[in-house]
Design a binder for these strands. Structure first.
Length: 401
RNA sequence: GGGUCGGUGCCCGAGCGGACAAAGGGGGCGGGCUGUAAACCCGCUGGCUUGCGCCUUCGGUGGUUCGAAUCCACCCCGGCCCA
């Protein structure tokens, strides 16, 4: 691959590269570059939003470069005291270890984990050794004005929201990581631009060649509005089942497909253009392909195929899924609402009542309308709440607990 | 340290002695429509009870009152201004 071809590939999907000439220069060196990515071990669940940048990292690996994952255990241990009334419990070393492990296990679905291509480091290794004097030296390299330039700080400051002093330290710590590991390139989402740029400055001050910054766009969540995140609930987790993944991906709006294709698959630009042009491809077909491609990345072609079939059956044709959870209960007659609740399909009896009154509950395909009606559970009876909640009743044989 | 304004249901936010499970919005959920969607329309959105109704909830703890999210005291947490 020529340098230009490499650049072209690395550019695909990227939001910004600072600077492209510098990146070209690094690539031209012909040696293995150290490509840094910082991970936050506070949330062990990786979702598709994280994979955007992980996939970019994988590209570097495939070109022969080394991915350097930094587990931010030190920053995590300090804890984020932003919560108001409750002091957030600091993560213990064990928790961080455990999180890092699951994180690593999930990231391994995307990265090349061979030792020649991947290095994992914990930043406590060097950050914990800094003395207070070292920290002061570090802080002297940045000004308050520059810190406040960072848009999140700026916005919060203007809105009158609190900013802890320690939050100013995060970019410095992250930047210091780059100094220590001598990063050639640092990856991150566009929200990381500021932090990564701080790394450049610190490296320069330390007499190093400043790292190249490569940022990826933030993946929009399933709601089509906000960034994909666990707390917003608009995410697809890497550990979601094939069916969950498929269903969630099918729920995105048509306009979002371009971004998802670009950031989550390897399809070439021209192909994506075809797929997202409604005159050339029916949007539903394109979306099915998108969902299948992504599910296949994590579970293989066969599982993806099955998820697609199931989805078609349950949602397009509104038939029952081929498998659903069994719920074992006795055959004592009871109120419809209580039955629905007993099957674990809703959180409370009151909710079950509401569901029934709204016409959202079916038993063996027949819609219920009275939450108070007595129902005698029968073996094999199928309960459905809404479109996607199912349970099959199994009668406990008498005598068994 | 002083002054001042705040802390309400998943989130934002109104309420400022009774009619408050608490307006309104967002989100979520259910129904309709569809291409599975998105958009749009309708509805629901603390729990228990067949039902009368009962219980828990408005930063915390105590108090005043027949009655408190609303008043008082102290405490905790946050914003802003002054030092």
């Amino acid at each position: 691959m020529t340098i230009d071809e490499q650049l072209e590939q690395l550019n695909r999907g990227a939001a910004e590269i600072v600077t492209e000439q510098e990146l070209a220069g690094r690539l031209a060196l012909g040696r293995q570059l150290r490509v840094k990515l910082g991970l936050d071990p506070t949330s062990p669940d990786i979702h598709l939003g994280h994979t955007v940048v992980l996939r970019k990292l994988r590209q570097f690996q495939d070109m022969g470069h080394k991915a350097v994952l930094i587990i931010g255990d030190y920053t995590a241990m300090i804890g984020d005291p932003t919560g108001q009334n409750t002091t957030r419990p600091m993560l213990s070393a064990e928790q961080i270890q455990a999180n890092a492990r699951t994180y690593f296990q999930q990231a391994g679905k995307i990265l090349d984990t061979s030792p020649q291509r991947l290095e994992v480091l914990y930043n406590s290794q060097w950050l914990s050794k800094l003395t207070f004097a070292d920290v002061i030296m570090l802080t002297s390299q940045m000004t308050v004005a520059r810190m406040l330039e960072r848009d999140t700080f700026e916005q919060r400051y203007k809105r009158g929201e609190p900013i802890g002093i320690h939050e100013f330290l995060y970019p410095l710590m992250q930047g210091y990581d780059s100094v220590v590991i001598k990063a050639d390139v640092e990856l991150g989402g566009t929200d990381q631009t500021f932090n990564i740029l701080v790394g450049r400055k610190l490296q320069q001050d330390a007499g190093l060649e400043p790292q190249v910054v490569l940022t990826m766009p933030i993946l929009v969540g399933l709601d089509g509005k906000e960034k994909m995140s666990k707390s917003k609930g608009n995410y697809v987790a890497i550990n979601d089942s094939p069916n969950q993944m498929f269903g969630k991906l099918m729920s995105i709006s048509d306009q979002m497909m371009v971004d998802y294709f670009t950031l989550l698959t390897d399809l070439p630009r021209e192909r994506i253009a075809e797929l997202t042009d409604p005159d050339k491809t029916h949007p539903k077909q394109a979306k099915v392909l998108l969902a299948r491609t992504i599910v296949a990345q994590f579970y293989g072609q066969k599982e993806a195929e099955e998820a697609a079939l199931r989805f078609d059956r349950v949602f397009a044709q509104r038939q029952l899924p081929d498998q659903m959870p069994d719920v074992v209960i006795s055959d004592q007659p009871l109120m419809a609402a209580k039955l629905v609740h007993a099957c674990g399909l809703v959180g409370s009896v009151s909710e079950a009542k509401r569901m029934i009154l709204q016409g959202g509950v079916m038993i063996d395909g027949a819609r219920l309308d009275d939450p108070n009606q007595q129902i005698r559970p029968g073996d094999g009876m199928v309960l459905q709440v809404g479109r996607r909640r199912f349970a099959r009743i199994r009668i406990a044989s008498p005598g068994k607990g």
